[in-house]
């Protein structure tokens, strides 16, 4: 399909790789890809780190643990459409946080990230992290609970501070939990579409376009099946490439740690 000149309806006019050339030249596509990469890296890193920190804090036997767990996990129970809209209102300068700050007298406050083309993708990251870190926390907490409390005691007697114990001793033991969370989050990056649609609809301008949205737009709104198919194929290829790099690495890692565990 991506090798044809299909517009509104599929046809069989073979055009070779012309659609791909068009795609690569398409500024909107370029923005989409850069956005996806940026979003993916930042979102994964921030969610994993934040989720781990939350789990570590909760693991220190705080009060109201089950309440906090529910609160942090709650965002994950909602769809991206819902939270997208919610954040859209919260971040809308004329409606949400900025308005609130202005109303209580902080007129100098600016909270307009959602409508600034250079910041909007970070706003999406923020929203998605808020959404996902509860899940990461739950996974990490399960992992942390599986660790012998006496490891902490041993580290304490050794004079190793809590954060050092976390970073150098405990976090490396949670490799499996990190991998699980990583895979789960990575799949949500790949299919990211609804958040962008609900929060910004790709805007302002094309500042928060994403490949999945690009495909949908060209497929349905713009009646350009050929280009949409090329975009879909290109996106799939990119993912496959990433997967081909990441999967063997994971495999090797798990195999190595399993071997170590068996010895």
């Amino acid at each position: 399909m991506s090798l044809t000149a299909s517009r509104m309806l599929p046809n069989n006019n073979f055009v070779g790789l012309r659609q791909y050339a068009t795609l690569i030249d398409n500024g909107r596509w370029q923005v989409s890809v850069v956005n996806l990469a940026l979003f993916g890296v930042l979102f994964l890193a921030a969610s994993l780190v934040l989720g781990f920190i939350l789990a570590a804090l909760i693991d220190q036997r705080v009060r109201a643990e089950s309440l906090l767990r529910s609160v942090f996990l709650y965002p994950f129970s909602m769809s991206f459409i819902v939270i997208g809209l919610a954040w859209r209102w919260l971040l809308d300068p004329t409606l949400g946080i900025e308005k609130l700050l202005h109303d209580i007298g902080l007129t100098g406050a600016h909270f307009d990230w959602l409508i600034r083309p250079d910041r909007v993708i970070f706003t999406l990251v923020l929203t998605a992290v808020w959404h996902a870190s509860g899940l990461v926390m739950a996974i990490m907490l399960a992992g942390l609970r599986g660790i012998d409390r006496e490891i902490w005691n041993a580290a304490r007697v050794d004079g190793i501070s809590t954060w050092r114990t976390l970073v150098f001793i405990v976090a490396p033991m949670l490799r499996g939990s990190f991998a699980t969370a990583f895979v789960l989050l990575a799949t949500s990056v790949v299919r990211l579409y609804d958040l962008s649609v609900a929060t910004t609809n790709g805007g302002p301008g094309i500042a928060s376009e994403l490949p999945a949205k690009f495909v949908m737009d060209y497929l349905f709104d713009r009646g350009n099946i050929g280009l949409a198919a090329a975009a879909a194929a290109a996106a799939t290829t990119m993912l496959a490439t990433v997967a081909m790099v990441v999967a063997p690495w994971f495999y090797w890692q798990t195999r190595r740690s399993r071997q170590a565990g068996m010895a």
Binding site: D148, E150, A154, A155, R156, V157, D158, F168, P172, M173
Partner: peptide
């Protein structure tokens, strides 16, 4: 006082070695 400031060392039932460190690392990290 904190455990590290008491002039004590301790050995636990479940070994409690730091699994991702070598033996040398386990002994020297503290």
């Amino acid at each position: 006082k904190e455990p590290k400031d008491r002039g004590i060392a301790m050995v636990f039932q479940s070994y409690t070695l730091y699994p991702r460190m070598t033996v040398r690392g386990n002994m020297s990290f503290g």
